[in-house]
Simulated assay, not measured.
Amino acid sequence: MLPGRLARKTYPFLSQLQVTVTSCRSMAEARKRFYRNVGVAGTNDSYEINLDHRKLKTPLGKVLQIPHYGLALAVAHEWTAVQEKIHPSLMHLTGLSFTVTDNPLHSSKWDVVDKMLDYLETDTILYREGSDDFMELLEREWDPLLEWFNTKFNVNLTPCNGICGANIPVEIREAVRRYFLSYDIWAVHGFFYGVEAIKSVVLAIAAAERKISVEKAVYLSRIETEYQASRWGSVEWAHDLEKYDLQSRFSAAMIFIQFNTWNATVKQKSNE
């Protein structure tokens, strides 16, 4: 069992990777903000976050080194935004960076991708069951994305009815595997965080490819909840909190992917 400081509020994926964690009571409580200034230092492919004179370290005591300047700035912003207390569970980009750096489960990129592929069999948009009008809604909202996915990967992924898992042919798994493996380990962790959040490989890839927005992906992943709420009403604080929490986590995943796949070239202005 991992100690409390390595619980899933620090490492975002530990529960998804089937690791037993300690109870919430043993997790470290929110700490009071202990620093005044936040800065980013580094060059090329290694950037560090400075909290006053201290380098930000991971739960295992490693100095956090981030390969992309944009991501380093985003992580630094999470620490700058802290008002009085540090709540690690709300600092998604920091948590993702800690996970990649410490790699507490010693997972290779292949291991993480393999875990993601398991979500294909239970992908949210593959399950179709309900009343006629609800099924029509699913076809209208989900089918265009499924068609896009099949065209992109040149496969024939089809929806299923009932509680049985979808039949995912080997060629579909391998096509999606090649797609994920084309990214670096940092981006792959971002994908995994996003897939786990909305329980859909198809929606996560569509959002990463900017076929749909984050808000649309989250809506499509919880379309049954939205449908029921439209008919029977909603508990405002509960449904809204769930939706915004999901949007926050999925947004962080997409930002993490984009920062770890975006390359920029800076050209110095000539003095001539």
Results as ranks from 00 to 15, higher is better:
L126Q: 02
L126N: 02
L126Y: 03
L126R: 04
Y127K: 08
Y127V: 03
R128A: 10
E129R: 09
E129F: 15
G130N: 05
S131W: 14
S131L: 12
D132Y: 15
D132M: 09
D133N: 12
D133I: 10
M135L: 14
E136D: 13
E136Q: 12
E136F: 14
L137W: 02
L137K: 05
L138E: 04
L138N: 06
E139T: 10
E141L: 11
W142Q: 04
W142I: 02
D143E: 14
D143S: 14
D143H: 14
L145E: 02
L146G: 12
L146M: 15
E147S: 12
W148E: 02
W148Y: 11
W148P: 00
F149P: 00
F149D: 01
N150M: 02
N150L: 01
T151K: 13
T151A: 14
K152R: 14
F153E: 03
N154R: 11
N154E: 14
V155W: 05
N156G: 10
L157R: 06
L157D: 01
L157K: 05
T158C: 09
T158R: 12
T158I: 09
T158L: 12
P159N: 08
C160A: 10
C160N: 08
C160K: 11
G162V: 03
G162C: 06
I163H: 13
C164A: 08
G165R: 07
G165Q: 07
G165H: 09
N167F: 13
N167C: 07
I168L: 06
I168V: 08
I168A: 05
E171K: 04
E171S: 07
I172V: 10
I172A: 06
R173L: 05
R173T: 02
R173F: 07
R173C: 04
R173G: 04
R173N: 07
A175N: 07
V176S: 02
Y179F: 12
F180D: 01
F180L: 00
L181R: 03
Y183H: 09
I185R: 05
W186V: 00
